[in-house]
Design a protein around this nucleic acid. Sequence first.
DNA 1: CAGAAAGTGTAGCCTGGGCTACATATACCG
DNA 2: CGGTATATGTAGCCCAGGCTACACTTTCTG
Lengths: 141, 141
Amino acid sequence: MAKLPAEGTQARRFGKTRSAQSTALLEDYVELIADLLASAGEARPTDIARRLGVSHATAVKTVSRLKRAGLATARPYRGVFLTEKGQALADRVRVRHRIVVDLLCALGVPRESAEADAEGIEHHVSETTLKAFAHFLKVRV
Amino acid sequence: MAKLPAEGTQARRFGKTRSAQSTALLEDYVELIADLLASAGEARPTDIARRLGVSHATAVKTVSRLKRAGLATARPYRGVFLTEKGQALADRVRVRHRIVVDLLCALGVPRESAEADAEGIEHHVSETTLKAFAHFLKVRV
DNA sequence: CAGAAAGTGTAGCCTGGGCTACATATACCG
DNA sequence: CGGTATATGTAGCCCAGGCTACACTTTCTG
């Protein structure tokens, strides 16, 4: 609408959105694995699959992608663990998730919706935006 | 942490996020096509491709998915148009996009980042959350 | 401690969304 | 009006991320 952005700008944004999507899944897995390790002491493919609502085969396949990406380690029949890099990512993701949920709640979104939407939103929140969220929460709540 | 959600809840959220991703692209296309039709009078596959930063072949393929989904019509070498359904979707998407961008700006996110992040975020904002955003913008700005 | 149950892994299939390469259609001009 | 440049469409490839089916471990239990 009368905006007519220089075509390169929009293209760049879309590219970024696309690549964000490819890492989103890995972030979710890493976050969940960290959670399972912390709460249950182990992260088994079946647990992961159940929590994510996918088949165990899908979970196994994705875990092998995590390994390829250097985020996790796993030995057959012995559960999944995070590498340092994976753990660091999990920490970052958890912090970001909290902030997004808190922000939505602060804006009046009911807890349940906030949790659900945050799951999708969080992967697209840049550092800059995250800082703005955190700042808003600090001064405004 | 220590949350241990009933496993079904989280699974449902992830499922929703996944399906949101599959419609996200179609929403982007529809929005862009509406934009091109409004500003240039026509939407050609090559323009779409350029704006989205993909090859024209990809654009053509996706347009055919839009057709299958009943959102667009296109005749060979004659450009792309939206069906009523597609136009309605475009309108909804545009409104949502505006609200998300405005909200981010209201929270102190610089315009440039707001536009970029909104591109990814908007597809995951539920009706409920969108209403909360709109309400916040009304009372608070 | 053997057999059943539960978990794990592998293979093979499908769809979406990218790409390049090539062939065809349209449009623009000398 | 013919030829070049641009746009369009098609084919075929790749990878991610789902799935089911099947085979094999591990664990639990009578």
